[in-house]
């Protein structure tokens, strides 16, 4: 995509965003900073306020308080300038079911005020890029979930926005379509576009995002790179399984700091996840001639981060697996 911005520019800069619907406080003063050309993920369970945040930043609704500068313009004072620079793919499918895939794209080309030939050219390009060329002449109502999502995104892209909001782009997709969507999102950013996405899937944020903000009950409870967030929780553990109690006892003496389970015949050794630590540990066990029946390494993942930060498990996960 065109319109590359220097990496120092903020694509989104928001401070103190607040929003209530009736008596329900949905956003309780959140600050966001998204550098241009990066993927930013707002992660949180259902009802955390993710969609509301996207709606405010994409000029659909107004915040009750706070400021937001999106693509260099104030969302309240200059919504049309913001709209001209952004593309939004929401949770609800935003394709016209009665139109064909190609007609949907041409509709968007017209609404982006593209010249007719340029519109056709870009539509054909996107249909090819997203593997939709074969079904371009069929009504969108006949498309599968994954095809609809791709068409939806293609419709957002035809105006070549510099900043794209994706509200749960892979919810409801099968694993293969999800991976396809991830590839598309990565390609976009490689082309200089900024992506602001929400997800309730920890894995998705981990896979895609340069930075992640964790939203829970309308407040940001953490922000950072995926690695930074993982460091927020206690380190991982190495779990050693033994065949009898004497082996376990010798291993416990050799390793010192470890929690011992005499019934299960296991030892859990805290570690920093490094290979060096593992090598040293195995070296000590060898020196004592202790035989290990099984070994597993647990590194903290974003699930642990989520649990630590929000104090409740990620209840949405079952739907995902």
């Amino acid at each position: 995509m065109n319109n590359k911005q220097p990496a120092t520019t903020a694509a989104v800069s928001a401070t103190g965003l607040r929003k209530s619907f009736g008596d329900t406080l949905v956003l309780d003063g959140i600050d966001l900073h998204v550098p241009a050309g990066t993927i930013f993920s707002l992660l949180g369970p259902n009802g955390a306020g993710k969609t509301t945040t996207i709606k405010i930043l994409s000029t659909l609704i107004r915040a009750d308080g706070g400021d937001a500068i999106v693509a260099g313009h104030d969302v309240t004072a200059q919504p049309d300038l913001v709209r001209a620079a952004i593309g939004v793919t929401g949770q609800l499918s935003a394709v016209d079911d009665l139109l064909t895939g190609q007609e949907n794209l041409l509709l968007m080309a017209d609404l982006n005020h593209l010249e007719r030939r340029e519109g056709r050219r870009r539509a054909a390009g996107l249909l090819g890029q997203f593997d939709l060329a074969d079904v371009a002449g069929k009504p969108a109502a006949t498309y599968s979930g994954g095809m609809r999502r791709k068409l939806d995104l293609a419709m957002t892209l035809i105006g070549r926005p510099r900043l794209i909001f994706l509200d749960e782009p892979t919810t409801g997709l099968d694993p293969r379509s999800r991976r396809g969507m991830w590839e598309i999102i990565r390609d976009l950013v490689a082309g200089g576009v900024t992506v602001f996405l929400t997800t309730q899937y920890l894995e998705e944020a981990d896979q895609l995002a340069d930075r992640i903000a964790v939203l829970d009950h309308g407040r940001l409870v953490a922000e950072g790179t995926p690695d930074e967030l993982k460091r927020l929780v206690p380190g991982g553990r190495i779990r050693l399984q033994f065949t009898d109690a004497s082996q376990l006892g010798r291993a416990a003496r050799a390793l010192g700091e470890a929690s011992r389970d005499d019934e299960a015949l296991t030892l859990e050794v805290p570690n920093d996840g490094s290979v060096a630590f593992l090598r040293t540990m195995l070296g000590r066990l060898d020196a004592e001639s202790v035989g290990v029946a099984a070994l597993s390494v647990d590194t903290p993942d974003l699930d642990d981060v989520f649990l630590t930060l929000t104090g409740h498990p990620d209840t949405t996960k079952d739907a995902w697996r």
Partner: peptide
């Protein structure tokens, strides 16, 4: 009631 209206509302039209 469908998603397309939100698309229209976030476009500079």
């Amino acid at each position: 009631t469908e998603g397309i209206i939100n698309r229209f509302r976030t476009m500079a039209i």
